[in-house]
Design a protein around this nucleic acid. Sequence first.
DNA 1: AATTCGGGCAACCGCCGCAGC
DNA 2: AGCTGCGGCGGTTGCCCGAAT
Length: 334
Amino acid sequence: MGRSPCCDEVGLKKGPWTPEEDKKLMEFIHKHGHESWRRLPKLAGLNRCGKSCRLRWTNYLRPDIKRGKFSQEEEKLIIDLHSVLGNKWSAMATRLPGRTDNEIKNYWNTHLRKKLLQMGIDPVTHRPRTDLNLFGGLRDLLPAANFGNLSHLDNALKLQADAALLARLQVVQNLIQVLTNSPTSNLDLMGLLGSASLGNPQLSYFQQLSRQYEGLINSSLSPHGSIQMPSSLPNLGFQNLLNNIQAYSKSRLSLDGGEVAVQLDGVSAYSYSFPTSSSAPSLVPASPEDNHIDQMQGHATSSNVSSTTAPFEPWEDLNLDDISSDFGWKDFLD
DNA sequence: AATTCGGGCAACCGCCGCAGC
DNA sequence: AGCTGCGGCGGTTGCCCGAAT
């Protein structure tokens, strides 16, 4: 079945090329070109298979190959191209003069892939990671706040509070990511959003998920029960949650229209109307007299203009100092 | 100074698509 | 239509070298 591999011939050399072999190959190609890689090795006096010669030429000896580190521009271009083309290294190479597909592939696998992972971006989908392994980092982070590891109680308390806050931020971030990036996940988001209320019993899975995370955080922070947690969430964090719910619901409902209402503490905070795919969604504050809702409405209204299509960037403007919202964590989770 | 370990990268391998017969 | 030859592609391997122990 099929043909035999070109390198099946016994006695052909493999492995790294010597300077002498390089010289022979270059001289031959400069004189005669490379019409037939199959015949080239014999004609050039090389004990290699044609494939090996071609690879050596295209990946190393070609005169137009650029050497040295990838520039920031090249790096960005590779990431952009990868988000569109996927692992089409040769197609990417045509857009990067002087770079070979092999070089780009290696650079992606050894540098860029890791870089994206460290930034919390899935290198395959180029979207924020939704897998719960993100919480693995939490396990490493939180034990540092344990009393036993520190001599100064004040520092320990501060660290622990910071860790708790960080932990909450990560929980919210991941919930947002689940909401915004997993339309095919176990979460019945269509049902969730279609039911037009965040205080709806259909949120049970969401709540269950949240409790699991809270349990993880509590057990990580204190082996003897739950700790005193700050009662507020960063305002921008929650505002971003709203933005993303809005953007997500818009993307899911814009085709046939619909309405999404958001309730806080049992009080209707917002409703988003998407009558048709062509008309712009409207944002209506349900209880403008409420202070924290007023505050959030300001953010949400401004973002409403910009929240058009995915991908979302929920944390790009997160300000850790802005912890002014009196929206309760427990209320959010429960 | 010797050894181990891990990252980076060149090269290989296997498969695919296309063209010619 | 099926076979063969070939170039090309993407995944993987394994060597080399520098850092860490």
